[in-house]
Design a protein around this nucleic acid. Sequence first.
DNA 1: GTCTATATCGGGATAGAC
DNA 2: GTCTATCCCGATATAGAC
Lengths: 214, 214
Amino acid sequence: MASKTAQRILLVSLELFNTHGEANITSVDIANELDMSPGNLYYHFKGKEEITAALFSMYHDRMKKILFAPGDNGLVIKDFFYFLFVTFETSHLFRFLYRNPSDLVTKYPYIERGFKQLIKAKEKGFKQILGDFSRQGTLAVQSEQIVHLIELISMVLTQGLNYYVMKGDDIDDEDIIYRGLAAIFFAISPYLSIDEEQTDSIRVAIANCTLDDA
Amino acid sequence: MASKTAQRILLVSLELFNTHGEANITSVDIANELDMSPGNLYYHFKGKEEITAALFSMYHDRMKKILFAPGDNGLVIKDFFYFLFVTFETSHLFRFLYRNPSDLVTKYPYIERGFKQLIKAKEKGFKQILGDFSRQGTLAVQSEQIVHLIELISMVLTQGLNYYVMKGDDIDDEDIIYRGLAAIFFAISPYLSIDEEQTDSIRVAIANCTLDDA
DNA sequence: GTCTATATCGGGATAGAC
DNA sequence: GTCTATCCCGATATAGAC
């Protein structure tokens, strides 16, 4: 499965799907881009469906690793944003999945299951982390507020890219990730009770796109 | 253009697009649903493209009317939410447009222009209203905060439906509108400086789906 | 593993009768 | 205005040679 050619096919397909949308790319397009015959492509993957499945499973695996990574305590706000950053980055890498989710979902049932699973996992993770912060005293929220907060964060995280697409912004630009992070930071900032210094450090980190140095 | 049959075609198409997605519905599907031959359908609309164009222009017209309706002053928070409600409702009525925006946008350039235009108009409208509230003292925000707030509101307004789809919630249910409104209310609530009574009345209105009685 | 050639299938589109 | 019949085309899929 992990043959050299299969890898190339996946990589090129991801690229094409991301820039033009899965629905607008045919198997022949992929083959052409690779200077390869359609027949050969079919030798490796039985059509676009299998390619999409493989890509989704890559995305799903990565996401799961990220979501189950954070140990359950000792996290600070900055860790949380690092966590968000990695999540966002992965979504951005597989952004074709977010271009037309409902179509993909109706065409490929396993994507539907996977998406729901991931959203649940994300929300659960957020709930836990924000709950920790709340108990630590860095976040002043009631439990019903947490629910709303999580919904907002999830929404930005999963729909932010689409929103920027609709606005006509350049979604391929990685800076879009930081705009999403800034939006999330804004959403939770009213509830943050950390000192100015920490707040600023996060803000600067987001603004300067240097969060990964944290 | 507004022949009886043409109207029926549009209505049924809207229904089908909303529930199955524009990309998954063929002209034949539409014809079948209407117990009509494909040939006849083509007599009225030269294919799906023309139908989609007609539907989008209906949506666009309605939206423009809404967006340019609010007089420039004397609005209270409740009016703002009524305004949001109507906007949401219209989006919901044409929700197929939000299922796979990027695909629609690449297939139909006029949709791209229309979308951008509407988002701009929305953001401009919000800016004005929120600015008014800020000057009135009902909203305590700095001007850079307003930008973020508008972005959040816009995001919920334009992407909320998609988010609920991904989560697997029933998007056809109109209650989804109120969930969106609640999310927006939550987002701006930290900045609201209105008395408890007003806050509660909005909250209750949203929760009980009775905003239209306001 | 890769190619060429070809079969198949479905949706879009039109012609012409009624 | 509406129907039937048909054509066209593009995308998927496969067979068989190299």
